[in-house]
Design a protein around this nucleic acid. Structure first.
Length: 783
RNA sequence: UGGCCCGUGGUCUAAUGGCAGGACACCGGUCUUUGGAACCGGCGGUGGUGGUUCGAAUCCACCCGGGCCAACCA
């Protein structure tokens, strides 16, 4: 694929699109500042790695910087060791924060000052209710909260109390500082969120300097603002927090262009646990050897396993960045690892589960050497090593079979197989002990096949790896498998269970493996491919001394074995027959009116009356009448438009479909134009002054910056082009630009008509009459 | 249940009103001294129903499904 250098496409995910737009529009004067903000209370895992690749990647691509900032606002569980851990892991992954290393706890003084600003503005107060009372006062998702008895304390009292909280006058829990926002907000986070709590705990970095600590929602946005972060990228579960993020920044006094938060879907991986909440019990129960256990999806675990950082980066690019929750197939990670290692790992021979071969026709005590290349023909890298050969060898037990399945092409009694880079051998005799256990195989070799080629040209299909018994090194080999069979991240909440659910075969240790002697001379961090087996490297903790211990990084793809299992009908059936019909099973005739709008009408007789009038007198559909009487605001807007252009169906369609789509979070009242303007626009379209398509462009412009439709049509050059000769000219031009598409169309791919219409529309900036264009196009292409 | 967010082949992800594309997986083939790699080919998708439009994965409505929010965690 991408030989050696792993450099996939640049990436055009929605985050990068936003950053690109902001860069082009000069919103931040071209600056791009992102940040990776871990809390130092655990080690980095592969989910963090995705975020690191995103944040540092975006900064790198747009010529910006990415800050490493520790979000150490809660003294419990945070420590220097974790701080160092993140730095180690980020560097290993290949990213660099330069001088931009920050700690949220270093901002405590400034944050305190900001809180005083809020208090003085009457936007924050000290609440002395108990935790329980505060919780109750917040209400539920369906019931509004109720103000507590301290909500209306005076500014002076709040300032004084807050200072005394800081000075340590109170016990933990005695008071908190709360924002005064809206106890009835539909967003629970806006119901007077706690900003500061008292914690008489030692901070790993600031000791006992502070006994009040800021909460995430208050602290994080300030940290971003202090550092002039432009794009604060976090995961989806913080979507609801964005409103509070904006509130704090605006009310403390940060003005545009200020920091803004964007959310993406975090990584979820099949067969893996990614949260520290779930890793900790595994570590504590001794199921894994520590945070760096090679079966864990921590970056330390992945690193110890032997995965190169390039592979992790490639993986992160492969999975992309989006807003839809997803669970990534672990096979993708494995692919990325193989992709990188195939290009870089030298091949050597090892036998994991050995069986002895005695060459009866090879002189006892004699040794010869084969010069074996480190890389296969299709990997453009040089190098060979000598591999000793003698009359006693080991081969993989699985490479011999007395009852071979069809298609088996390794060693069988009486059959031949090639020993890689050495000789073709034939199995003459199977030796067993009294108990019937396999002891060794007696074989003969074809002395003319030195190097592996037969002189008579006979085909020997199988080639297997081997090591000379006398020269072999004995090694321990650790084979890793998924820690979990299913997807624990999704179900089973209890910690107890997670320990019980681990795959008992997630680690298999082989102590008698045999490896060719050449590896003794290699650097201990060499990643090898053990031919036909997988990628391995020496365990950096247990396997670096005289003792050889290898970790399997990932196995080789095995199409033989998978093609075997596929013929098994039980393993084959993908998903069961009964497909869920889900949504379309039973369909009730839907009432085209919504409950909330129904309620609005019930509360306002005027609206109810208009609803009746719209649907009967004006002849609108129920759906349109419903939408137009959601509120007086909408209805009035509609009637103003009607006053200008009295065609209810046309106006309703523009208002309920096109304009609604442009509104976004805004309401009609926020628009820089009035109902009359919409009426004018619709009238222009009705009068054939511009195409409906062009009308939408005008409407979009109006929604952005207001303006008179008549003027805009002229200004934007959208006066309808319906003149046949003009259109034919443009059509000719379009067809000439796409000769191969024309051929495809005429060959039967008539769906391309849309593309041609689109091209013509583009060339006329939307001014052409699409109906005419289509008609002319069909005539022209068919005739 | 109120609010917010999200539904594109088995999986991940593009298409920003105009040809539904890529990757992984899977299946077949070529080649091969790794049952690896590479190469060639194939299977397979817009949750549903209406609406707007010359044209809808994309805009509108309703429905279905999933996620997040009621810590003095982040």
């Amino acid at each position: 694929m991408s030989g050696g250098e792993v450099s996939p496409k640049p990436g055009t995910d929605f985050i990068r699109q936003i950053v690109a737009e902001d860069t082009e529009s000069g919103r931040y004067g071209g600056r791009v500042v992102t940040r990776f903000p871990p809390e130092p209370n655990g080690y980095m895992h592969i989910g963090h790695a995705k975020s690191v690749c995103l944040n540092f990647g975006v900064a790198r691509e747009f010529g910006g910087v990415c800050h490493l900032r520790y979000d150490d606002t809660n003294p419990e569980g945070e420590s220097e060791a974790f701080v160092l851990g993140f730095q180690e892991d980020i560097r290993w992954l290949g990213f660099d924060w330069g001088d931009h290393l920050y700690f949220a706890s270093d901002y405590f003084e400034r944050m305190y000052d900001c809180a005083v600003i809020l208090i003085e503005k009457g936007l924050a107060y000290v609440d002395s209710e108990s935790e329980q009372q505060i919780r109750e006062g917040r209400g539920t998702v369906t019931e509004a909260g109720t103000p507590g008895r301290y909500r209306e304390r005076s500014v002076d009292e709040n300032v004084d109390l807050f200072r005394r909280m800081r000075d340590g006058e109170f016990e933990g829990g005695a008071h908190v500082l709360r924002a005064k926002i809206d106890l009835e907000s539909s967003n629970m986070l806006m119901r007077d969120p706690v900003l500061y709590r008292i914690r008489h705990a030692s901070h790993y970095r600031h000791g006992d300097d502070w006994c009040i600590y800021p909460m995430y929602d208050y602290a994080h946005c300030l940290e971003d603002a202090f550092e002039d972060v432009t794009h604060s990228i976090c995961t989806l579960e913080f979507e609801n927090n964005r409103e509070l993020y904006d509130w704090v920044l605006e009310n403390v006094g940060f003005e545009e262009p200020r920091s803004h938060q964007y959310e993406f879907a975090r990584l979820d991986l099949q067969h893996a646990v990614l949260s520290k909440r779930k890793i900790i019990p595994l570590v504590e129960a001794g199921i894994v050897t520590g945070w760096d256990d090679p079966r864990l999806s921590t970056v330390r675990g992945i690193r110890r396993r032997g995965v190169p950082p390039e592979a992790l980066r490639l993986f992160c690019e492969m999975i992309g960045v989006a807003k839809a929750h997803s669970v990534v197939d672990i096979g993708k990670l494995e692919y990325a690892i193989r992709e990188v290692l195939n290009q870089s790992a030298p091949r050597v021979m090892a036998v994991l589960d050995p069986i002895r071969i005695v060459l009866t026709d090879y002189p006892d005590g004699e040794t010869e050497e084969f010069d074996a290349p480190y890389f296969p023909h299709d990997v453009p890298r040089e190098g060979t090593r000598p591999v000793p050969f003698s009359n006693e060898l080991f081969i993989e037990c699985a490479d011999f079979s007395e009852n071979p399945p069809s298609g088996f092409r390794r060693l069988v009694p009486g059959g031949e197989v090639r020993l890689r880079y050495a000789y073709v051998i034939r199995c003459e005799k199977v030796v067993r002990d009294e108990a019937g256990r396999l002891v060794e195989l007696h074989c003969t070799h074809d002395s003319d096949s030195r190097g592996g080629k037969t002189v008579d040209g006979r085909r020997v299909k199988g080639t297997i790896q081997w090591v000379s018994a006398d020269h072999a090194l004995t090694a321990e080999i650790r084979l890793y498998d998924h820690l979990f069979g299913e997807v624990p991240e999704n179900d089973a909440p209890e910690n107890q269970e997670i320990v019980a659910r681990v795959n008992p075969n997630s680690l298999v240790v082989l102590v008698g493996a045999k490896v060719e002697p050449s590896i003794r001379a290699d650097s201990p961090d060499t990643r090898y491919q053990f031919e036909r087996t997988g990628y391995f490297w020496r365990d950096p903790v247990d396997g670096l001394g005289d003792k050889l211990v290898f970790n399997r990084i990932v196995s080789l793809k095995d199409t033989w074995r998978s093609s075997k299992t596929k013929s098994d009908p039980d393993l084959r059936r993908g998903k069961a027959g009964s497909e869920n019909v889900g949504n379309n099973a039973i369909k009730v005739e839907k009432p085209a009116v919504s409950e909330s709008r129904d309620a609005a009408r019930a509360a306002a007789p005027e609206l109810a009356a208009r609803f009746e009038r719209y649907s009967s007198d004006l002849g609108l559909t129920l759906e349109q009448a419903d939408l137009l009487t959601a509120s007086l605001e909408v209805s009035d807007f509609f009637e103003k438009a009607l006053a200008v252009h009295d065609h209810p169906a046309e106006v309703a369609s523009w208002l309920t479909t096109d304009l609604r789509g442009l509104l976004g979070a805004r309401r009609l009242g926020d628009l820089p134009f009035e109902g009359e303007d919409l009426g004018h626009l619709v009238a222009l379209v009705a009068a054939d002054r511009l195409s409906r398509r062009a009308g939408k462009d005008v409407l979009a412009r109006m929604a952005r910056e207001g303006g008179n439709p008549e003027q805009l049509v002229v200004e934007m050059g959208l006066e309808k082009v319906a003149d046949v000769t003009v259109l034919e000219g443009v059509i000719e031009e379009a067809l000439n630009a796409w000769p191969e598409k024309v051929a495809e169309y005429q060959a039967g791919k008539t769906g391309l008509i849309g593309m041609f219409v689109g091209e013509v529309m583009k060339m006329t900036k939307g001014a052409a009459d699409p109906k005419k264009v289509r008609k002319l196009l069909v005539q022209r292409l068919n005739g």
